Simulated assay, not measured.
Amino acid sequence: MNVKITQNADAELSIQRVFNAPRDLVLEMWTRKEHLDRWSCPDGMTIPVSEGDIRTGGWFRTCMRGNDGSEYWVSGTYHEVSPERIVFTHAWDEESGERGHETVVTIAFSDTEDGKTHMHFHQAFFTSTASRDGHAEGWKACFEKLDKLLSQTA
């Protein structure tokens, strides 16, 4: 049997970033609810509800609320939570209440020589380039908030 594996680069999102903080602090920002609630939504949004169990085999469900009152629910499961990587699924709730298309998010952390943290963020596979691009803008805004929070904490 022949197997052909292809990847559509338009269906993947990759962001690399260096944070001016040690890896253990960056990891804490990803794994503690009180920190996630402060940075993991774009500007103009809040997180009025978040619940879950942030560990390998755990889960999450979060509501992001816009200034206009609109709500966006997202949920997933954690496949790996370690000092080097976090891997989780990510799916938005549809208007019908059903869970939408699921992507997989992989975040790899490594130390830089000068004590900072390099983060490689990858999310795949999207159903459209518009979805990927929307997520790119959202995550970039979140990472700006994370960077600011880290600068106040470190």
Rank of each mutant, 00 (worst) to 15 (best):
K4V: 11
I5A: 07
Q7Y: 09
N8C: 06
D10L: 10
S14K: 14
S14W: 03
Q16A: 11
R17A: 00
V18A: 05
P22E: 11
L25Y: 06
V26T: 01
L27S: 00
E28K: 14
M29D: 04
K33N: 09
E34H: 12
L36I: 15
L36H: 04
D37A: 15
C41G: 09
G44P: 02
G44E: 03
T46Y: 01
T46D: 09
I54S: 03
I54A: 05
R55V: 09
R55P: 04
G57Q: 06
G57S: 07
W59Y: 15
F60R: 00
R61M: 05
C63I: 14
M64G: 08
G66V: 02
D68K: 07
G69R: 12
S70W: 10
W73I: 12
W73G: 03
S75L: 12
T77N: 13
Y78H: 10
Y78Q: 08
V81Y: 06
P83M: 03
I86C: 06
A91T: 02
A91Y: 06
E95K: 15
G97W: 10
R99A: 02
R99C: 06
G100R: 01
H101M: 11
E102T: 15
V104K: 11
V105H: 07
T106Q: 10
T106P: 06
I107Q: 07
I107W: 02
A108N: 11
A108D: 13
A108F: 05
A108H: 13
F109E: 03
E113P: 06
D114R: 07
K116A: 13
K116F: 06
H120E: 12
F121P: 00
F125Q: 11
F125R: 08
F125N: 10
F126S: 02
A130W: 04
G134W: 12
G134E: 11
A136Q: 14
K140Y: 03
C142H: 12
K145E: 08
L146I: 03
D147F: 02
D147L: 04
L150T: 05
T153A: 02
